[in-house]
Design a binder for these strands. Structure first.
Length: 320
RNA sequence: CCCGCCUUAGCUCAAUUUGGCAGAGCGUUGGACUGUAGAUCCAAAUGUUGCUGGUUCAAGUCCGGCAGGCGGGACCA
């Protein structure tokens, strides 16, 4: 596959790449490193899965994949004691493997390197380069909002920037909520004589309740190891306004999971409502916006799809 | 180190001057209405009132101690 084709593949489904020219250079490298950091989370859900799938795709294209299990970051973000978080990290590692990343994937626990002298030295250097306002702003979409924000909130982004240098990352992949931290890295790493990675941002999934963001703290997600019945119930309870595409979580699941995976979505429908349909992405959008496709039929189709799509994951989770 | 204020349901907060059955909104759950969800309407559930000792027939409320949070002051050779 030529480089142009690889670039197109990587760009597919992303919101932005900063920037494409640099990524092209990275693609000429032998084993360029792509990384994503995740705060250990009680459940790995479809939102996480968007980035994991992108990592998997890049792995297939020859990238070395490093996943940071960001235990200290979670700790700084008030997600629990470091012991609890490390338990969760183990579970998350299993989830990521279940999603199909190969054995060549490096899983790195943050605390294994984030206290080393070279690392803290870089954090301190970054601390002298970053204003408090800038650091706080970079955390707007990432940190828990507290009436009593902690110093931890401004250490967090500095560490994330230092991670990229310590893990020798060529490409940093993350959801759009990471953008401000990533840009901070692009800006400040060169100032401490480190190379800034290419930054790639993927879209955020709306919560099943229609909330801005699917998030484990809000319970508005499909977890990758949810039971079949749970998937059905959750999809059925989901926000899904008739004819509306924008901000519709069920349509988003179709866009981000069905169609990258298969050309058509089978909609099983009783005869009295028009009988079965097989729709391409474009057709789905048209049919749904026109009102010809009822939300309930779409929901049933999506639930069926997800149950099948996540079957391998459930198997892996129970057998490993 | 000193002083003041705060801590009540998952969340935001009520519970007056003067101690008298711990409440509301939001959220959650369930029903009604929709061939989904939401919106709307109806209904329900939920408490170690931060912890602890005391006063009292009776304490969220008064007194003491402790913890956590917030603000201020002091110290600055």
């Amino acid at each position: 596959m030529d480089i142009k084709a690889k670039l197109d593949l990587i760009e597919k489904g992303t919101l932005e790449m900063i920037n494409t020219e640099e990524l092209e250079e990275k693609l000429k490298k032998e084993k360029a490193v792509a990384y994503t950091g995740y705060e250990p989370s009680g459940k790995i859900h479809l939102g996480h899965t968007i980035t994991v799938m992108k990592l998997k795709q890049m792995q297939d294209l020859g990238f070395k994949i490093k996943i940071l299990l960001a235990d200290y970051h979670a700790y700084l973000n008030g997600k629990g004691t470091i012991e609890e978080i490390e338990e969760t990290a183990k579970y998350n590692e299993k989830c990521f493997k279940a999603l199909g990343l190969s054995d060549d994937t490096d899983f790195v626990l943050g605390s294994t390197f984030q206290t080393k002298p070279e690392y803290t030295d870089e954090v301190y250097k970054l601390a002298t380069l970053t204003t408090i306002v800038r650091a706080k702003r970079s955390m707007d979409q990432v940190s828990r909002h507290s009436e009593h924000p902690k110093v931890a909130n401004v250490i967090y982004p500095l560490m994330q920037v230092a991670d990229m240098s310590s893990l020798e990352v060529d490409v940093a992949l993350g959801g759009m909520e990471q953008r401000k931290i990533q840009v901070l890295a692009r800006e400040n790493l060169p100032k401490i004589d480190k190379e800034a990675p290419v930054c790639i941002h993927t879209p955020l999934l709306h919560g099943l309740d229609g909330d801005e963001k699917m998030s484990s703290s809000k319970g508005n997600f499909i977890a990758i190891d949810d039971e079949e019945s749970e998937i059905k119930t959750k999809i059925n309870k989901s926000f899904c306004p008739m004819k509306e595409i924008e901000g519709n979580p069920i349509i988003e699941i179709a866009t981000h999971f069905v169609f990258p995976n298969q050309a058509k979505l089978l909609i099983e429908r009783p005869e009295k409502f028009g009988g079965n349909l097989e729709l391409s992405e474009k057709e789905l959008i048209e049919t749904y916006s026109s009102g010809e496709l009822h939300p309930m039929d779409l929901k049933n189709a999506i639930a069926t799809f997800l149950i099948d799509y996540l079957a391998k994951v459930r198997d892996y989770m129970t057998n490993n």
